[in-house]
Design a protein around this nucleic acid. Structure first.
Lengths: 128, 128
DNA sequence: TCTTGACCTTCCAGTGACTGGAGCCCCTAT
DNA sequence: ATAGGGGCTCCAGTCACTGGAAGGTCAAGA
């Protein structure tokens, strides 16, 4: 399989697939013409990586998850810890964003949004 | 005032303040020795920028907000639109993160997290 | 006066995870 | 023979800083 086929199957752009090879997440074989040749195992790995990225795991986390996935002797505890740490970061981010959301909602509601210069949003940003 | 004083007052690191000058958000005066000299107006601007950044506005949004703030002829509608667009992006991000959160919470709950290799998290990532 | 240490300066490189583009090669169909 | 749609590599840019090197400046103490 060529890169564009894999791209269609996994939903990952060709650029991203090449990038993943670049940083050592996959090692597809090469044809005599230099083209990458993807076996099923490569596609499977890429799909795995795509799903992990969708869940927000960092590339380094993905690397670790792949290694654990391929390690038959792994402890599920290691996987769980990684996921929990990631979850905690997500929880934190959501809280931050919700705090911004609350403030912004309030300010937007207060602002007339007309052609006059008076603006509670700017007043809030400029407060001492 | 020197940069470290302004840093203490605004909570912005000196590096960030220099960066903001670099990209033209502020134009502090210079002493004969080359040191930046911050007037009250500069500090005020930096505080404004710091608060806008805290609300998650991009640097380019901050630039626009500053311009609107300094424009006595502005329409509050322009400010409101900017804030609403930003708010919409935040809403979207929160939704994305909440979806990840839900999936991860579920997976983490399912995973024994012991010294055995069996792991629902990896099974989920590896599913076809 | 000299020295020490805390400032300040500029400039360069790195972060994460791609993405766009240039310039080139290859393959297939007409 | 050529046209087009692939593929390849390499370089630069994104965003908003941040770290570090190399060097100039200032105030206080010996």
């Amino acid at each position: 399989m060529n890169i564009s086929d894999v791209s269609k199957r996994t939903g990952l752009p060709p650029k991203t697939i090449r990038y993943y090879e670049d940083i050592g997440l996959i090692r597809p074989a090469r044809d005599t013409n230099g083209y990458r040749v993807f076996q099923h195992a490569d596609t499977h790995k890429l799909a795995f990586l795509g799903r992990a990225r969708t869940l927000g795991f960092s590339i380094e986390d993905c690397r670790t998850l792949m290694a654990l996935y391929e390690d038959q002797e792994r402890n599920s505890g290691d996987v769980k810890r990684l996921a929990q740490e990631h979850l905690a970061r997500i929880d934190e981010k959501i809280e931050q964003l919700q705090s911004m959301q609350a403030t912004l909602r309030h300010l937007v509601r207060e602002c007339a949004g007309d052609n006059r210069p008076d603006c509670p949003i700017l007043r809030d940003l400029a407060q001492d």
